[in-house]
Design a protein around this nucleic acid. Sequence first.
DNA 1: CCTCTATATTGACGGCTTTCGATTCAAGGC
DNA 2: GCCTTGAATCGAAAGCCGTCAATATAGAGG
Lengths: 132, 132
Amino acid sequence: MVGQDASCCPGLASAPLADVRATELAKVFKALGDPVRLRLLSMIASRDGGEVCVCEMTPAFDLSQPTISHHLKLLRQAGLIDCERRGTWVYYWALPGVLDQLAAFLTTPRAVTEVTVAEAAVVGVTTAEVTP
Amino acid sequence: MVGQDASCCPGLASAPLADVRATELAKVFKALGDPVRLRLLSMIASRDGGEVCVCEMTPAFDLSQPTISHHLKLLRQAGLIDCERRGTWVYYWALPGVLDQLAAFLTTPRAVTEVTVAEAAVVGVTTAEVTP
DNA sequence: CCTCTATATTGACGGCTTTCGATTCAAGGC
DNA sequence: GCCTTGAATCGAAAGCCGTCAATATAGAGG
């Protein structure tokens, strides 16, 4: 699961980046390149229930309501969050897929043995299976 | 080592981001938010010797020499690369520290037991120490 | 149906970014 | 010293971005 994301796309340091892929990635990084959007995304991603109402985010900033709405739109267009209207309110939640892809992209490749052992552990392999 | 980077600064999804830290991080993400800079950084980071001459990067793009120089400057100001003049030529290399920090920041926290076991494995703890 | 509240959209303004041509600076070779 | 080559800086033009006030839309409740 996590390992597949990392293996499907070469990381930043594994080979020179192709033009098309660089453009794709730059779009997402650009969405993260604003303090307000970073705080919004963090607010949403760190929320326990997984959802945050706009009515709760707007007063957390010294910005107008349209500005917050604009930033949320950009985060949504970058594939980082999604939303749903429920009555008068709109709720946002995080989509972890793109974030995980970015993390994998930025992660500098470690030694092969370390990666293998670590991921065996994450996947849930028992210690007996790892060492005879 | 890797674990310390992750633990010193709370990740995106662990708690709402503070204003100051969001501004810091946004600066780096903004530097990554351009296809040309992403390709430049990838070219540098993926190079085997670790160093790339400007004279090699400039012709790889359909852009003027001052423009490439400008992008390299932004990457350097973001703490992602550094350079040194050697005779007539200037060589750039990647500084992995900030990249690793970003990757840790973006990585969504896994279940506690998984993390513990995985990092024990990475650090090199024997299986006997992990399970009694 | 009208009103009220919550959110999104529109239009405009100032500032920042990307890009270029022209120039400058640094180092080597003659 | 003077010229050549590689790279950085300067100054300007075009476009994009973050922000706001004003307006539009969606739904709830009388």
